[in-house]
């Protein structure tokens, strides 16, 4: 770990001022990922700006019947918040599928969006990694890539985004509220994370000097027909090989609205509107779900060790949509994949 300066910010304006004054600064809230990366010398911030005391811990209803979630709400608090449990259970479920109880207690919502890939080469400073050291090469492309991306990857990087929460947020059409030196702005969560292209060191479209202040949820919560299914190498405390967030609105057995996002397969939560459009007006059947899966996975490319993900993702999509359609969402507490 490097030595660093420490500043405590009292409000958002403070943060923006401190960020502007020190281009090497990083924000710290729960620190569950940043501290690990600092211990490994992957992140070497000149300054940590402690934002944990900022007044961004509320979950509020918005005039349009949506929600505004402060960036510092701990993951656990959000998952067990009555409004989330009742109206956005997909989000609650996805959060509880991630990490461990201890980590969820520490981790903030904004920090969850900012967490970095768990690619082993990114973590090991002795190996080439374009994300850590631009231009040094990607060790994963010809290396150990069993858990790497099959969608949206590039010749520079095949890392995946590790977040579960983001996958549900993508499916729910969440917004990211951002404050920065030029004022406030709001972008769709699906536009927040990037695909790697030739700049894999840039994870998100958050600009220098900006801070996430809140997450916005639109009114539609899909509380009746949803499921979050996470497939991994053990039943808890492991990153997704493939995860699926699925949400439906049904009229009888006909789908009137569908949402579908994949985790563990790309540099960002993977959502494709064509796949959802293909479901609208269709009956909730495995065949239709399979077709949606094919559309969602269009363009997927297997690496040397992750070819299994293509078929696994397809099957997981169908299963998750079936769970959603039947109103029997995947439990994150039972010792069983339903």
């Amino acid at each position: 770990m490097n030595n660093f300066q420490y500043s405590r910010a009292n409000d958002v304006a403070d943060v923006i001022r401190l960020l502007a004054a020190d281009p090497g600064a990083k924000l710290i809230a729960g620190g569950t990922n940043l501290i690990d990366l600092m211990k490994e010398n992957v992140e070497r911030p000149s300054r940590l700006i402690d934002i944990s005391r900022l007044p961004l811990r509320n979950v509020e209803e918005t005039p349009d019947q949506g929600l505004r979630i402060g960036a510092l709400v701990p993951n656990s608090d959000l998952a067990y918040h009555p409004l989330i449990e009742q109206r956005y259970p997909l989000l609650a479920s996805a959060i509880l599928a991630g990490a461990s109880a201890q980590l969820r207690n520490m981790a903030s919502v904004g920090g969850n969006l900012m967490q970095r890939t768990r690619c082993a080469y990114f973590y090991d400073t002795t190996t080439p990694c374009n994300k850590r050291e631009p231009g040094s090469g990607c060790s994963a492309i010809d290396g150990l890539n069993r858990n790497h991306a099959i969608l949206g990857a590039s010749n520079s990087c095949i890392a995946t985004n590790p977040s579960d929460m983001s996958v549900a947020l993508a499916a729910l059409g969440a917004l990211v509220h951002i404050a920065g030196p030029t004022g406030e702005r709001t972008i769709a969560l699906t536009d927040f994370h990037r695909i790697p292209g030739d700049k894999p060191h840039v994870d998100t479209n958050l600009s220098t000097g900006e801070i996430i202040t809140a997450i916005g949820l639109p009114p539609r919560g899909f509380a009746r027909n949803y499921s979050y299914l996470k497939i991994r190498d053990r039943l808890s405390y492991a990153f997704a090989l493939v995860s699926v967030a699925a949400a439906l609105e049904l009229e009888g057995n006909a789908i009137s609205e569908a949402r579908l996002a994949l985790g563990g397969v790309a540099h960002k939560p993977w959502r494709r509107l064509e796949a959802e459009a293909a479901l609208r007006g269709q009956a909730a059947t495995p065949d239709h779900f399979g077709r949606a899966a094919d559309l969602l996975l269009e363009g997927a490319v297997a690496g040397s060790h992750n070819g299994f993900k293509l078929e696994l993702a397809r099957r997981a999509v169908v299963r998750t949509l079936m769970q959603a359609a039947s109103g029997t969402p995947q439990s994150q507490a039972h010792k069983k994949i339903a």
Binding site: A120, D124, T126, T127, L144, R234, L235, S236, Y237, K335
Partner: peptide, 29 residues
């Protein structure tokens, strides 16, 4: 079902040298 020390033989280096990525069963298993 779980345990394996994974080495990248190009570097002769263990790539999952931590108990997050070196999987042992958890209670749920």
């Amino acid at each position: 079902l779980h345990e394996e020390t994974v080495m990248d033989h190009r570097f002769g280096r263990i790539m999952n040298a931590n108990i997050g990525e070196y999987h042992i069963p958890v209670n749920a298993d």
